[in-house]
């Protein structure tokens, strides 16, 4: 299944919460949806889950529009919000049973689906508990079970790891890996970027309602000039942090080298050089500085993770 978000716009009064966002992902992908607080993540996710409608633009699930046919889209989308109702009068198994029935699961198929989902999300021990009596971690599991009960091809998760203890986070990561291997397309928003990096194939970064960057992690890292993770075909780019007393001269000298694509003088006085071609080109590039007799006090090969990427791309401003 291919999910295409096309020119999505949503305003609340004078505030443009989502401003012309477009990206796409497909089955088997886990995409992280990243942005500072107030960036428009939840609004976008809500529109993708048919809970809200865009002012313009559309979300297509294999060509089926979430705006024109929300009922059709709901059949293939499982949405996991960051909360669960606090009903005192419904038990976990009844809640899941209701959703299974609501999605048209009948007879043995429903019983089997519920048993499988309870086992998968490890709900056996709490199936007779009331929703109001569940802990945060339990609620997240019930919420995931609810989203998966009709075996959707797409899973949209809003802060699934929020409030979970380390063990529960590890379990969630493992579950997501399994779901991805089953061929589900997964989009999840989270603030724990180090965790996203381990499981995500790609990311969508937004800020102030605008799309800053979207693509696979390798594409994003290359775009941001931070080297690659494991893409042999991508042009390898390496960032090197250099401490030198004569920054301007050093910058000009570095730019003379054909492998150096860009040199940035950072606020802390360090130079950041982006070298295209890989790690093996770092010594000859540095050699040009030494050969010119410039006072280099130190240098370090910089590795860029999702957190660094996020910090580099976003400004931290909110609407």
């Amino acid at each position: 299944m291919k999910i295409q978000v096309k020119n999505l716009m949503r305003s609340f009064g004078a505030t443009r919460a989502v401003d012309d966002i477009s990206f796409e992902f497909a089955s088997g992908n886990i995409f992280g949806f990243i942005g500072p607080n107030g960036a428009g993540k939840t609004t976008t996710i809500r529109m993708m889950a048919t809970l809200d409608l865009p002012d313009s633009g559309d979300i297509l699930y294999d060509g089926v529009s979430a705006v024109d046919d929300p009922e059709e889209v709901r059949k293939v989308v499982g949405y996991m919000p960051d909360s669960l109702p606090d009903f005192r009068d419904i038990q976990v198994w009844e809640y899941l049973d209701f959703f299974a029935r609501s999605f048209g699961l009948r007879g043995e198929r429903r019983i089997r689906a519920l048993a499988e989902i309870e086992e998968f999300t490890n709900l056996g021990g709490i199936r007779y508990k009331y929703l109001a009596g569940l802990s945060k971690g339990m609620k997240q599991r019930v919420s995931l079970a609810r989203a998966l009960v009709h075996n959707p091809a797409v899973l949209i998760m809003d802060e699934p790891a929020a409030g979970l203890d380390p063990r529960a986070r590890l379990e969630l990561r493992a579950l997501l890996k399994i779901l991805s291997e089953q061929g589900k397309a997964i989009l999840l928003s989270s603030h724990i970027l180090s965790e996203l990096q381990d499981i995500c194939d790609g990311a969508v970064i937004i800020e102030k309602g605008k799309l800053l960057s979207a693509g696979t992690l390798d594409e994003l890292l290359v775009k941001a000039g931070g080297g690659t993770r494991n893409a042999p075909d991508a042009p390898r780019q390496v960032a090197v942090m250099i401490q030198c007393a004569k920054t301007q001269e050093a910058r000009l000298k570095l730019l003379e080298h054909p492998a150096v694509k860009e040199v940035v003088i950072r606020a802390d006085g360090e130079l950041q050089a982006f070298i295209e071609g890989g790690d093996e080109l770092v010594p000859p590039v540095m050699g040009t500085l030494f050969a010119a007799g410039l006072p280099v006090m130190g240098f370090k090969r910089q590795s860029i993770g999702l957190e660094e990427l996020f910090m580099r791309i976003t400004t931290g401003e909110v609407q």
Partner: peptide
């Protein structure tokens, strides 16, 4: 809560 409303998340 719109996100938990079954009329919006089921068929």
């Amino acid at each position: 809560d719109r996100e938990l409303d079954f009329s919006r998340i089921t068929t």
